[in-house]
Structure formats: structure tokens, C-alpha cells
Simulated scan of single mutants.
Amino acid sequence: MAKVLFVCLGNICRSPMAEAVFRHKVAEAGLAGRIEIDSAGTGDWHTGEPPHEGTRTILRQNQIDYSGMRARQVRQSDFHEHRYIITMDASNTKNVMKWAPGSHDAEVRQLLDFIPERRGEDVPDPYYTGNFQEVYEMVDEACGLLLAYIRTKEDM
């Protein structure tokens, strides 16, 4: 089973959006039993909260389920439990690596690195910008390419 963890700052906007979008794409591909998806934040401010209303709205508009999702913080054990840890920006990557144990097999990458022309770019935080549509479009495109990457790498 390939396990994917999406990470942003508070786990209420970008990473739950990516989790829901990726779940949707995985289900459409008939791979729900082969890929497990979760999300977390580098901060603990929103632990236990559902996704931000802006995230819920854009997901509903695109008929993507987000039921049962609650914010949590990244744990050191995530590096042993997940094969892919996908961050939303460079700051998230830096903070995630603070939790990394001395040895782990998790592949840590930024989400937009899966879009060749956006490699190295950050997914802007709609908590501050309010632009949930722009973020959704980035996440949707990158998640499709991430799924293709995982399917190839995992021979699915």
C-alpha cells in the first residue's frame, strides 16, 4: 500500500484540499484500496478542526467529498508510516524535515514540483490570499501528475 501525506501550515486549507482532491482522483482510477491518503500541518493551531470554509466550498463546487477530515499536526512517525510526504511550500518542507528521524524511507517533495513548469514554486496559502479557486486549480493539476508518478513508481 502506497501511503501519501499532504502537509501545509495549519492543515485547514491547502493540505486537506490536496487530500480530498487526491482521494477523488485515486477513487476515479480504481485505486482506493492501493493508495492511502492523509494530511497534516506543521503547526498545531487548528488541531481537530474541519477544513476551512473556503476549502469546503471549493470542494463542494467540484463535487469532491471531504467528510471526516480533521486537522492534525505532523508526527515523527509519519516518516515511517508514509512513503510520500508532499508539502505545499518550501517553508513546510523545511519545517517537516525538523521532524524527520535519522533514517526514513519517505520521499519528501513539494506538490508543484510535479508540474514541470512550476517546479520549485509554492502553493500560495488561501488562508491569507483568499484565492481558493487558484489554489484548487494548482492542486488539481499537480495531484493528477502525482498520481501518474506514483502509479509508475509503484507499478499500479
Rank of each mutant, 00 (worst) to 15 (best):
H46T: 10
E134K: 10
R56W: 10
E117V: 13
T87P: 05
M1S: 08
E154A: 06
N92R: 08
R75I: 04
G41V: 00
V123H: 02
Y127M: 05
R70G: 06
D38C: 06
W99R: 15
I86Q: 01
K25I: 13
A148I: 09
V21M: 11
F114S: 02
R34T: 12
A20V: 01
H52E: 10
E53L: 11
K3R: 14
T152D: 15
M156W: 08
T55D: 03
Q110N: 15
K94Y: 07
P126G: 04
I85Q: 09
I64W: 02
N131M: 10
I115Y: 07
E117W: 13
V21C: 08
I37S: 08
G144P: 06
Q76V: 14
E107F: 10
Q61M: 15
M17D: 02
V21W: 06
M69K: 06
R75W: 04
M156L: 07
L9Y: 04
L146R: 07
Q76M: 15
S103T: 14
S91Q: 12
A142M: 01
R109S: 02
H24K: 12
S67M: 08
F79W: 08
K153N: 14
E121L: 12
A100W: 10
D65T: 12
D38P: 09
N131W: 07
Y66N: 00
Q133R: 12
G120N: 02
V4N: 00
E117Y: 12
E117K: 13
L145Q: 08
I150C: 02
D78I: 03
T55H: 05
N92L: 03
T129C: 10
V108L: 09
T87W: 07
W99S: 15
P50K: 06
Q61Y: 14
I115H: 03
P124W: 04
T47W: 13
K153A: 15
D125L: 11
R83G: 13
L145M: 10
N92Q: 12
L5V: 01
A40T: 00
